[in-house]
Design a binder for these strands. Structure first.
Lengths: 185, 185
DNA sequence: CAAAGCATGTAAGCAGTTACATGATTGT
DNA sequence: ACAATCATGTAACTGCTTACATGCTTTG
């Protein structure tokens, strides 16, 4: 499961519970995982089986007991090994493009409506990305990562920037296509 | 299965066999499906069950019998209905970004190597995209689509252009990040 | 009193992948 | 001789998703 590498990544910062990881993934939009129970808890069980993490059960007074997961040396080695593997190509999949591809079945207005709706959604996304970046700039040291180096900050900011730029590019593309379609006879 | 809409799309042009569809998907990189047997043949069986396509078995002299699939009115209606549904957000997933996110575990040279390798792969992809677009420009009417309107051609060209621009954008991003990392103390 | 938060887990299912299985024919 | 093309299909698996199940506590 490819998400387990990302889990190991977060655990390399500090020990966390499944519940905390869930929230982290749900918040970290650039990581594109929904952070659903099945994957997080399932991966943690798997990681424990292979010895990449250790478990410490913490009883609590007013809340259910929680399991704190800590990365082991073996987990660290596994993470490093993965980091050194040849990176895969990014996966881009836009069902909207497929819809556009057969818009010959649609009238001019219907096609324009489809594009308008796509544009709106992408624009929202782009704004949200920029907002996230802005807020991060305001609250500097908060992000959970201990001892973040300048290098790491640069990389994380670049990844967020990449995401924003992607949506902005897609938005520009949709707008330009829509304009070109209006100019057609 | 979301690929079945794309299958209906191609069948809306002309009747095709599973084998032909397989090749079409394998060639149409912008459609990001591998065109593996299981999906194509499985979807066709499903589409036939729901009455979206009809089958005609053609015996051949020197080759195995083939099944020619034709879209029905019901299939056309289903396709049109899907085209009018609210488009989904594009899905972007770059494992390479996740690797970069924890490159704190790597040395400067290792990180640079990772980025270099990513850069190379993206650059190849970008070149291939441009090459496909160039070749399409040379051979005009070939593409299998009957009676393509100016509108449709514009859209298909835009989708290819979008794909190329995506890889070029990603390439520029990787290069700029690499340059910034070199300037760091 | 209902909703949201804390905390763990399971069940069922969808979409996609590689690899396997068959078997004639044509090209190198 | 070996590989590729034509043509259909199945098996086994991965990764991911939503929804279900439980139960106590805090906040509105």
């Amino acid at each position: 499961m490819s998400i387990s590498h990302a889990i190991l990544g977060f655990l390399s910062w500090k020990p966390l519970t499944g519940y905390e990881l869930k929230k982290i993934f749900a918040d970290a939009l650039s990581f594109h995982w929904s952070g659903n129970n099945n994957q997080i808890y399932g991966s943690l069980i798997e990681l424990h089986k292979t010895g990449a993490v250790s478990i410490e059960v913490r009883q609590q007074e007013r809340y259910p007991a929680k399991k704190l997961y800590t990365i082991t040396d073996r987990g660290r080695a596994e993470l490093r090994e993965w980091l050194l593997t040849e990176p895969e190509l990014p996966l881009l999949r836009s069902l909207a493009h497929i819809q556009l591809a057969w818009s010959e079945c649609l009238s001019g207005e219907e096609l324009d409506g489809l594009l308008a709706s796509y544009e709106r959604q992408i624009a929202d996304q782009a704004i949200m990305c920029r907002e996230t970046i802005r807020r991060r700039g305001e609250a500097p040291a908060g992000g959970g990562a201990p001892g973040r180096s300048a290098r790491e900050r640069l990389i994380w900011d670049s990844i967020d920037e990449n995401r924003a730029a992607f949506y902005e590019g897609e938005l520009a593309w949709a707008r330009s296509l829509r304009a070109k379609l209006r100019e057609l006879p």
